[in-house]
């Protein structure tokens, strides 16, 4: 489903050029649960951003369902992010003034068609992640674990095929981490493809495969 061929990414900040990816190739099939691990600064987030179409590679090819992303325009990439992908970030990235329900429904704003009963669906999703009582609470009033659960519900609202999670438990205590990981594992069991970056070997154990990176390269892929 996702296929990267010799991806390279160099950040160009004026004077300094930082090579973050130095030729990464990988394939992710539908239903996979892949954990990406590696030392800080090795390019995990960079890879995730390119796979999630939040950024474009400097060189190399990336195909989604066999389509070259290089050939896709901004609108088409946006549509991919809206419908096919869901994102969970380390920093939650909710709109702090919006309520849980409004945050979950945010992706619907950027969708042309409006399926019936979306509000009900958003509420159901929040109930599934255990926030049925806090539908109208503002995001900034929630704990980290609760915010991440809202983010999961938001990632699911358009029923995407792939969930990208960049250190989803990075800012959470171990109890919350466990709950979040249970949710993510459950999603994979329901058929969602999951690409997750993590530092935590315990967390990585939940995945079906682990991709190890170092210095902008993949140094190994192992199944658990």
């Amino acid at each position: 489903m996702l296929k990267a061929i010799d991806l390279q990414k160099t950040y160009d900040t004026g004077a300094v050029k930082t090579p973050a990816l130095r030729g990464v190739s990988l394939t992710i099939a539908a239903g996979d649960f892949v954990a990406v691990m590696g030392p800080s600064g090795c390019g995990k987030s960079t890879l995730m951003n390119i796979l999630g179409c939040l950024d474009r590679p400097t060189a190399g090819r990336y195909q989604v369902d066999g389509r070259e992303t290089a050939a896709l325009g901004d609108r088409e990439l946006s549509r991919l992010r809206n419908r096919k992908f869901g994102f969970i970030f380390q920093a939650f990235n909710l709109l702090p003034r919006y309520t849980c329900l409004e945050n979950v429904m945010l992706p619907l704003v950027y969708r042309r068609d409006q399926p019936a009963g979306v509000r009900q669906r958003a509420a159901d999703l929040l109930r599934q992640v255990g926030l049925g009582e806090r539908l109208h609470a503002r995001a900034r009033e929630l704990s980290g674990g609760q915010q991440q659960r809202v983010a999961i519900a938001r990632a699911l609202i358009n029923d995407p095929e792939v969930i990208f999670a960049d250190e989803p438990t990075g800012n959470l205590d171990s109890a919350s981490s466990g709950e979040i990981m249970a949710l993510i594992t459950g999603l994979n069991r329901q058929g969602k493809t999951i690409v997750m970056v993590t530092h935590d070997p315990e967390v990585a154990k939940r995945a079906a495969a682990i991709i190890r990176m170092q210095d902008g390269r993949i140094i190994g892929r192992e199944s658990c």
């Binding site: 901004d74 946006s78 990235n93 909710l94 709109l95 950027y110």
Partner: peptide
């Protein structure tokens, strides 16, 4: 910046 980034991530295009 962050707000726009979030909106972009969940599917807003440049035009949006």
């Amino acid at each position: 910046t962050r707000e726009f980034g979030i909106r972009r991530a969940v599917g807003a295009s440049r035009g949006d």
